[in-house]
Nucleic acid binder design. Structure first.
Length: 266
DNA sequence: AAATAACTCAACCGCGAGCGA
DNA sequence: TTCGCTCGCGGTTGAGTTATT
């Protein structure tokens, strides 16, 4: 397909901030084009596959970091019941979440939650996944917003609500939010932003926002309600795209996505 | 304080689909 | 049709972290 192939031995393991920066700058400037030629042109000793994964799961704009809200978890459980392990399809319905993130969360937590529910059907969870269908999924927002949703929910949310602050977040947010702050102020904004996303975004984010300044950042990307009807979800296979409009992406990325590698690197 | 078990999650691997030559 | 290649997906691994003894 005209893509230049890197023949050097590929580096493996965790990405360094410097590698992230190189990859990010390259994609911002030129778009990703064909992944196999990215490492060569970006000066990375990685293979294209690894670059793609890093971009999709970590560097891509609009990603949420931090704990899953209960509404998100309920949605995952309901979608999983219908779609099975189609993580990428499930991820389409959860804006800002990656298939890998959802898959990890499923294996580390939701699977257990589900088995608990099966073992104890009288559990406090109202929207029991074993009864989930697309119809019931439609109600997940309402059910999770219930004030009596159970103390368990809140306690567990409190337990896991603090997100990790990862270097890619301080790399990306300033640019992708279109804020031209000085470095010190943008760091403060970034931390605030990532903290907001670490919280359950359906239940308490509004009150939380009122307590902190700079809430526009958190709401800027989420211009649409977080949870829409299942019909809307199913009709829109590009749920993630709602988060950042196409024009918005073009604004952020002067490069054009998915153009031919030959055009790029001739 | 040290050992170790349990957990999380970023990253790798292998496979299949799709495409062009 | 076949071959070679890229891409995307799902399964899995293993390093790092946290909890428990």
């Amino acid at each position: 397909m005209g893509c230049k192939k890197a023949t050097q031995k590929h580096k493996k393991g965790l990405w360094s901030p410097d590698e992230d920066l190189k990859l990010k700058n390259h994609i911002i400037k030129y778009g990703h084009g064909c992944w196999s030629s990215i490492p060569l042109n970006a000066g990375l000793k990685r293979n294209g596959k690894s670059c793609r994964l890093r971009w999709i799961n970590y560097l891509r704009p609009g990603l949420k970091r931090g704990a899953f809200s209960f509404a998100e978890e309920d949605k995952i459980l309901a979608l999983h019941r219908v779609l099975g392990n189609k993580w990428s399809q499930i991820a389409h319905h959860l804006p800002g979440r990656t298939d890998n993130e959802i898959k990890n969360h499923w294996h580390s937590y939701l699977k257990k939650r589900l088995s608990k529910l099966v073992d104890a059907p009288s559990s406090s969870f109202k929207s029991a996944p074993q009864n989930c269908s697309f119809d019931s999924l439609e109600n997940t927002e309402a059910s999770s917003a219930d004030t009596d949703q159970s103390i368990d929910h809140q306690q567990e949310a409190d337990k896991c609500s603090l997100p990790k602050v990862l270097f890619a977040e301080w790399l990306s947010l300033d640019q992708f939010n279109g804020h031209n702050h000085s470095s010190s102020s943008s760091t403060a904004q970034d931390l605030k932003y990532s903290f907001d996303y670490g919280r359950s975004n359906s239940e308490d984010s509004s009150t939380h926002d009122q307590q902190l300044n700079g809430e526009a950042i958190a709401t800027e990307i989420h211009t649409k309600p977080n949870f829409i009807s299942i019909d809307d979800i199913l009709r829109s296979p590009f749920g993630f795209d709602d988060q950042i409009s196409e024009t918005g992406l073009v604004d952020y990325f002067p490069g054009v996505f998915n153009f031919s590698c030959d055009e790029l690197y001739m």
